[in-house]
């Protein structure tokens, strides 16, 4: 009996420590974003603020072209989502349903590209875009992610799980290949499409690397790069303003995570299961 109580208390304490380790940084981020510069330099620090400094947020917008960068983020994210829908779905469908000459070679090639990180090829890609005068265009940010090997792999897996008989029934129902794909298969694959869209949204929204290496001007830069300007432009770091910028960057993803936590976690675990 006593052992049981101790054990439960131990479990509770361990859980609490975990929560602290993983939530404290976010609490600290929000808290700092509401402090004055003086308060951030106070020792011992305050763990609560009585007069939140909302102006830190307007300060963010004063120092960087926040709304134009927000617009860029949205354009790039939507652009990539739309492009991937158009390229991934037919490719996955073809790989799942047809045996054609070279199909396994092309699919192998697709899988190989999954192993190649952006960080490996950014330099030649930058040179390529600059030769084509495409640096500082939305196209340079969207096109490299216009298709996704991982998404093709996942969608193919989903299409393959649909029993052949359903496709055959549709053929007997006088449906052409395009109709089978759009009216029969795609609705069945909807959960996977949503899942992939969530993953792509989060990855694109958070991406700092591509916009950093493929742009040189603020006109097309996205929010993550913009936020870093809060750090780099000033001599010292105003942590309260920097954290306010971070809060703004994190909010959309956090809202998505709050409403679709189960789905997002499931989305990411999909990868590991295959």
């Amino acid at each position: 009996m006593k052992r049981n109580v101790l054990r439960r208390a131990g479990r509770g304490l361990a859980g609490l420590i975990l929560v602290l380790i993983f939530f404290a940084p976010f609490y600290w981020m929000v808290l700092t974003s509401l402090k004055t510069l003086g308060q951030t330099l106070k020792m011992p620090p305050d763990f609560w603020v009585s007069d939140p400094q909302w102006r830190n947020f307007s300060e963010v917008m004063r120092r960087i072209p926040f709304f134009s960068m927000l617009k860029n983020s949205i354009i790039v994210t939507i652009g990539i989502l739309v492009c991937q829908c158009l390229t991934v779905i037919p490719a996955a469908y073809a790989f799942a349903r047809f045996q054609f000459r070279g199909s396994s070679f092309l699919f192998g090639l697709t899988l190989t590209t999954m192993m190649i990180p952006a960080q490996m090829i950014f330099l030649p890609l930058f040179l390529m875009f600059s030769k084509m005068q495409m640096i500082n265009t939305y196209a340079s940010l969207i096109l490299p992610s216009a298709s996704s090997a991982f998404a093709i792999f996942m969608m193919r897996q989903t299409f393959k799980q649909v029993p052949d008989e359903i496709v055959e029934a549709a053929r007997l129902d006088h449906a052409g290949e395009f109709k089978i794909m759009c009216r029969v298969m795609l609705p069945i694959a909807r959960p996977t499409v949503v899942t992939l869209a969530l993953i792509t949204f989060i990855a694109t929204w958070n991406d700092y690397f591509w916009p950093l290496v493929l742009t040189t001007k603020d006109t097309v830069r996205t929010l993550p790069v913009g936020i870093t300007a809060l750090h780099l432009d000033e001599g010292g770091i105003d942590y309260n303003v920097l954290m306010a910028g971070n809060v703004l960057l994190v909010i959309p993803v956090m809202i998505a995570f709050f409403f679709a936590q189960k789905q997002i976690i499931k989305a990411f675990t999909y990868i590991g299961d295959k």
């Binding site: 029993p163 008989e165 359903i166 055959e168 029934a169 549709a170 053929r171 007997l172 129902d173 006088h174 449906a175 009216r183 029969v184 609705p187 069945i188 909807r190």
Partner: peptide, 30 residues
């Protein structure tokens, strides 16, 4: 001649109903 043009209808062992359509849409699709 395509399956759809042979004037035949088939009933499958696992029924092969379109899972995302309701009964009426299933019947109506063809």
């Amino acid at each position: 001649v395509e399956p759809g043009d042979r004037h035949v209808a088939m009933v499958f062992q696992n029924y092969a109903l379109y899972p995302t359509m309701n009964v009426k849409e299933n019947i109506e699709f063809g």
